[in-house]
Design a protein around this nucleic acid. Structure first.
Length: 421
DNA sequence: CCTCCACCGGAAGTGGAGGAAT
DNA sequence: ATTCCTCCACTTCCGGTGGAGG
């Protein structure tokens, strides 16, 4: 390679990718965090929520709300949207309305929750409540005085409320109004777990559930509208084949009408097309995207598995390979997996878990969708689980090998018949 | 129709970690 | 600092079971 070519190549690697001859106009519009101006097919939910919260604009306390809906049904988007509008209207009417959004998956303890809400009212950086150090009830009383001093109506959104540890925090928050003189607080809890309220303190339950909103899943045609709207903003005109949006919608509709899933499919399909230099997104890229999402999911799950679950997974993998090479056509059973697993443990000098425990871990792997395990009866030869890998063995092996512990282990060969007949 | 295999899966208990209360 | 409590991973024990082979 001449001096000249090397220079141009290295100089242009980003230039070529940067030149906007791809498919996207505004990539952000396809991300889950993007907030569109219009939320299609959520008009009813928006107006329901608005009518519950409108007392805030008259300085009265709105009812607390509990919102339930599966992932990707627009709970968070609708709530944030209504909140934004409410604050805007409040400024117009000169009514003080505060809107605090907390994601309980990130802020999951009582202390951090109270700390976070309090800091929302403290602009001066040096005045802020530290991550740790204060007694919990002091933070609580600080919060009360902050809210009272601030006045007006404060609406606190607790997203993913089921992730919050302990219900003391909810109990305290739901009673805060009786300690306030000049201000009012109302709570909005969001969850995708309907059973969540069953385990709650009955007092919290009745106070939080003054109003309930249920967000139904989107159906395929509603998903199409959402995708069309986003595609208009995010993509160049006329880069999608006609069947791309219907396909994305149909696939996502099968997954309980998850709009986020639909958007991910479309975005990844477009990204794959762009990366391959294709001028158009075809249904082939949607299929590839779906595959990529699945592989990414499996990769992530397997990578973060605890050691013993990985060992069990490897045991299943080895057994499957062994069966294939010996032409054995029987199904893999719990007992066989357990035997191989024991050997693997011995090899790396790890304690062996009991078969009972291993059975539970196998069920977990099943629930994670890495394997399928269903109970079958082999008559005289007992009752057991039939265990199968649910995705490519090589793919999983590759991920397992990332763990240095499994580097050598994966070469382990099962000696002959592990079980006498 | 009965037996009996090779597990399933519920119940109860242990022990250690981590957080809250005193 | 110490005790208490709660959670979690795991063990022990054991009754239960679908159906091939007798």
């Amino acid at each position: 390679m001449s001096e000249f070519t090397r220079k141009t190549v290295s100089k242009d690697i980003f230039g070529r990718l940067l030149r906007n001859d791809g498919i996207f106009v505004n990539r952000e519009a396809m991300r889950p965090s993007y907030m569109p101006d219009i939320l299609p097919h959520r008009e009813k939910e928006i107006s329901d929520m608005a009518s519950i919260l409108v007392p805030a604009l008259r300085g009265e306390t709105p009812s607390n709300i509990f919102i339930y809906g599966k992932t990707g049904t627009g709970k968070t988007a609708v709530t944030k949207y209504v909140g934004k509008e409410l604050v805007k209207k409040g400024e117009e009417l000169d009514r003080k309305v505060n809107f605090v959004y907390i994601n309980c998956e990130v802020v999951d303890t009582q202390y951090r929750l109270l700390q976070n809400i309090s800091n929302h009212f403290i602009n001066d950086w040096s005045e802020r409540i530290p991550f740790t150090g204060w007694p919990t009830d002091e933070v609580y009383s600080k919060l009360r005085s902050m809210i009272d001093k601030n006045g007006g109506v404060t609406i606190i959104i607790l997203d993913e409320i089921d992730k919050l540890k302990g219900d003391d925090a909810l109990y305290n928050l739901s009673r805060i109004n009786s300690y306030l003189e000049r201000a009012r607080v109302s709570l909005v809890g969001i969850s995708n777990d309907l059973k969540f309220t069953e385990f709650l303190d009955p007092r919290v339950k009745s106070s939080l559930g003054e109003e309930n909103l249920i967000f139904p899943p989107y159906d395929a045609s509603e998903l199409q509208d959402i995708l069309k709207q986003r595609a208009d903003i995010a993509l160049k005109h006329n880069v999608l084949d006609d069947d791309v949006i219907p396909l994305c919608s149909a696939l996502a509709a099968q997954e309980h009408g998850d709009a986020r899933r639909a958007l991910d499919l479309l975005r990844i399909a477009a990204e794959l097309a762009e990366r391959e230099g294709s001028p158009r997104v075809t249904s082939r890229y949607v299929r590839l995207a779906q595959n990529k999402i699945e592989v990414d999911r499996i990769t992530e799950v397997v990578r973060t598995l605890p050691t013993h679950s990985k060992l069990i997974l490897l045991a299943i993998l080895l057994q499957e390979k062994h069966d294939k090479s010996t032409g054995n056509i029987g199904v893999i059973t719990t007992g066989e997996v357990y035997d191989v697993y024991k050997e693997l443990c011995k090899k790396i000098r790890t304690d062996v878990l009991t078969q009972r425990r291993v059975a539970d871990l196998i069920s977990e792997l099943d629930m994670l969708g890495i394997i399928t395990a269903r109970v079958i009866s082999k008559g005289r030869y007992g009752r057991t689980r039939e265990i199968k890998l649910s995705s490519s063995a090589d793919e999983i092996l590759k991920i397992l090998k990332e763990d240095e512990l499994f580097e050598d282990l994966s070469k382990y060969k099962i000696q002959g018949q592990t079980r006498l007949i």
